[in-house]
Design a binder for these strands. Sequence first.
DNA 1: CTAGGGTTAG
Length: 685
Amino acid sequence: MHQRQILANLLRSCSKNLTLDKGLKSHGAVLRMGFACDLMLNNDLINMYGKCGKIGSAYDVFEKMPERNVVSWTALMCAYLQNGNAQKCLSVFCQMGASDSKPNEFTFSTSLKASGALGIVEYGMQIHGLCAKSGFETVIVVGNSIVDMYAKCGRIAEATLMFEAMAVKNLITWNTMIAGYTVEENGKRALLLFREMQEQGEVPDEFTFTSALKACSGLGAVQQGSQMHAFIITRGFTYDAQTMVAGALVDLYVKCRRLFEARRVFEQIKQKNIISWSSLILGFAQEGDLEEAMNLFKRLRVNARHKLDGFVLSSLIGVFADFALVGQGKQIHALSTKIPSGLDISVANSILDMYLKCGDPDESERLFNEMPAKNVISWTVMITGYGKHGLGGEAVRLFNKMRSDNIEPDSVAYLAVLSACSHSRLIKEGQEIFSRLCNDRRLKPKVEHYACMVDLLGRAGRLEEAKNLIMNMPLKPNIEIWQTLLSACRIHGGIELAREVGEIILRLDGDNTVNYVLLSNIFADAGNWKEGERLRKLVKIKGLKKEAGRSWVEVDKEVHFFYNGDDSHPLTEKIHEVLKEMEKRMKAEMGYVPGLRFALHDVEDESKAESLRVHSEKLAIGLALVHGRLEEKKIIRIFKNLRVCGDCHLFIKGLSKVLKVVFLVRDANRFHKFEDGLCSCGDFW
DNA sequence: CTAGGGTTAG
């Protein structure tokens, strides 16, 4: 056989098997044998380097080629796309337009995929236009790519139009459209199409099932999902190797909170991939079954350590951060220092976040300073954390330092620092940063940024200014920004404005309890009990529900959760005893009066009867006291999913004085550090 | 050289 053909075959096998070392040797051979200018071999080299992740080498080959054809251009585009640089892929496509080579169906398909990956429909539409003009629109591969592009850009209507216009369809066409519909709101359409394709005589394959299952899990339709599961089994699919279908089934059952079923499918997979592992582990963790989650994680660590990647580590750390389980978090932190993916910046960032959320900003700061490489998220994590710890000044300092470190703040970073300012009541600083945002040519302030400013002004009592900001902003105000203003009205007793804003809010969303509760609190506050009571009744009639308040505390490495009025804990009696005793001591020593006023304020209380029951955060504290050896300055950490209630706030302040103990309470909004009768939030919780 | 799933951290 011709030497040239042998080299070509060699290179193609390297591309297929991702064997870079062999590829490099073959490249050497190509040069030695005098094929440096060979068009076909160079094309194969570009492809090989692209597949092996050596995008720089791919470009070098392309650059040195004396002549290029459409395959050379397309191979380079693919190389960029496969290495995660869709933008570059498209710019090569543009450069190609100025060359002698004309795009073919491969080129169009690749450029459409890049547009979809970027999610920029304008690019995709232009390319669609070019396809139509050059007659490639009717080539089925290109048509499929166009449908996919529109779907990926969130243009379901355009995708549907294209799909319906395609005279000839194949299985991939159907699969692409079904996958496109597999977004929450379109899950039903996905399932309808799934049925329709079978009526048209198409036979679903594993791609089809994967999408259809995903549609079920998006809809929370566990019934339909299990039916499909049965159907899949009758079609003879097995889970010997990790199939996409098995992964989708695990995911379906996890999302529908059927952990038992999820595990059953998972255990049948002989070669489990990392996504199924992480899906199941996170499933257990998010259900609060941390023991099971940790057992699975241990198994993963022992049996398939090499499979651990940054995704699993950072998401698992994220769960521990949310539950504030610093012990488990530390375990993974320790592990991450021993494996390669522990060096991922996302893992480092999640560790920073974990220590901050667990109430240890010093540890985060230490790690942050040691990080060899930081990205905008690293900075934002720190700024957000400082903000929640009431360290607004630190947050602002870091925000400014970030720029001198050549990292440009993005929209989220601005939001973090503005929110830190509003929590620490740094009005001047907040206004300066906001005006910087307005002058930043890269970014436009979003409603959320305005909401921060409304909060900042509102908390300072500048209600009219806050209102004018909303009225004059160039964006459509959403319900949240009005709620922010309403809260400010409550703090400062702006009853007239509250009535005005309240009407706007109820018009926008009359189905949300929070609005009624907030409004009725304001009226009750101002002594307008009748109006308050009327709104409260409305809530009852509508039967509106909201998230149940839940607090927890870690005692002896075990986490105990409490709901309001929860008496399921084995030590309930002792908890009540100690709480009563504390109340007595506080009454005697510092004239504490239970905050009746706050019983009404409490955002999660819906009736007086309920407010008499014991709040979850008090129960958690009670348990800590029952268990704890209370040395002076000992820190007790309590966590709550919603905001801490006013009476509890008062109660904990008193406790910190009487017992000389420090309480660190993390609620939905921020951290409260109670020390010697005072709270770090200055009562503006 | 091309089309379909699963995508972490603020």
